[in-house]
């Protein structure tokens, strides 16, 4: 965990008068699980959107494995090995869960084969294997629009994992998931990602999840990083507890969806 996989320096982005990124400097180290916390509107999703090419910063740059990726399209960035999941799961609603994941597998391999089925042996087995690891095998044949929120979240992340990324950015992977299922889902997720040696950045509002699973935590506040370090240290900081965790515990409205 000594080398920076992703390096963001001096990122600035404003929407009108709102500064969503106001000088963000952040290194994401290879192999780590970095949690991003902060109140709604602090710019957490904006950071993910900038890193994955959906938004272009007004200033600053992002480098991945030493290569500048600022301004590249989402398509180009995902091909370099950066995938993402969404706060509002972005599944193909008229496809089954298996087809969703198989389509991600196919897109990694190149989808330009018009006469061979998507669910060909190789793709189907890989999709089944991923669904198995995520505990989604039982709903493989269910259409995405018939899933509950927890299953949608996992399927959304499973699709991102099917792209075999080296860096995965997850936007609130546990929001909308029933409290009783949350820890089990994160446990599953972390196991899958650790096995696949994926570096992960995840926006999270549940401090128990952060404390238990993150290697480091970055605290976002008004487009800036207010604190960064090991969870035990950062979450014990009175200022963080007062200004961020207090807000987190009382936050009722989810952050506005992007992408």
């Amino acid at each position: 965990m000594s080398e920076a996989l992703l390096r963001a320096s001096g990122l600035h982005l404003a929407f009108g008068g709102v500064r969503a990124a106001d000088g963000i400097d952040l290194d994401v180290m290879r192999g780590e699980f970095l949690a991003i916390i902060g109140p709604n509107g602090a710019g957490k999703t904006t950071f993910i959107n900038m890193t994955t090419g959906y938004l272009k910063p007004h200033a600053g740059e992002i480098a991945y494995e030493g290569r500048r990726i600022t301004g590249l399209s989402p398509r180009a960035i995902v091909r370099l090995g950066i995938a993402r999941s969404f706060q509002l799961p972005q599944l193909f609603l008229e496809h089954t869960v298996e087809q969703n994941v198989a389509l991600a597998v196919a897109s990694r391999e190149g989808i330009w084969s018009p006469l061979v089925p998507l669910l060909r042996p190789g793709y189907r087995e890989e999709a089944r294997d991923i669904l198995d690891r995520f505990g989604l095998s039982a709903i493989a044949d269910t259409r995405a629009d018939a899933l509950n929120e927890g299953a949608r979240k996992l399927a959304d992340i499973a699709m991102a994992v099917a792209l075999k990324p080296r860096l995965l950015l997850m936007d609130e992977p546990t929001s909308g998931v029933a409290a009783s299922e949350k820890m089990a889902i994160v446990e599953t997720l972390v196991t899958v990602l650790r096995d696949a040696k994926v570096t992960a950045v995840f926006v999270e509002h549940d401090m128990d999840v952060v404390e238990r699973f993150a290697d480091r935590v970055a605290v976002w506040s008004q487009g800036r990083i207010a604190a960064l370090g090991p969870p035990a240290e950062v979450l014990a900081d009175p200022a963080v507890q007062r200004e961020v965790i207090g807000i987190e515990r009382h936050a009722a409205t989810p952050e506005a969806p992007h992408a």
């Binding site: 994955t52 399209s73 989402p74 398509r75 995902v78 995938a83 993402r84 972005q90 599944l91 193909f92 609603l93 008229e94 496809h95 087809q99 198989a102 389509l103 991600a104 196919a106 897109s107 990694r108 989808i111 330009w112 084969s113 018009p114 006469l115 061979v116 089925p117 998507l118 793709y123 699709m159 792209l163 992408a259």
Partner: peptide, 20 residues
């Protein structure tokens, strides 16, 4: 085929295709 299923994907989640 993957092309046909991706075509169907345009109808519901075109953005996701780009992120894949």
């Amino acid at each position: 085929s993957p092309m046909g299923e991706a075509l169907k994907g345009i109808k519901t989640r075109e953005t996701r295709l780009e992120f894949m």
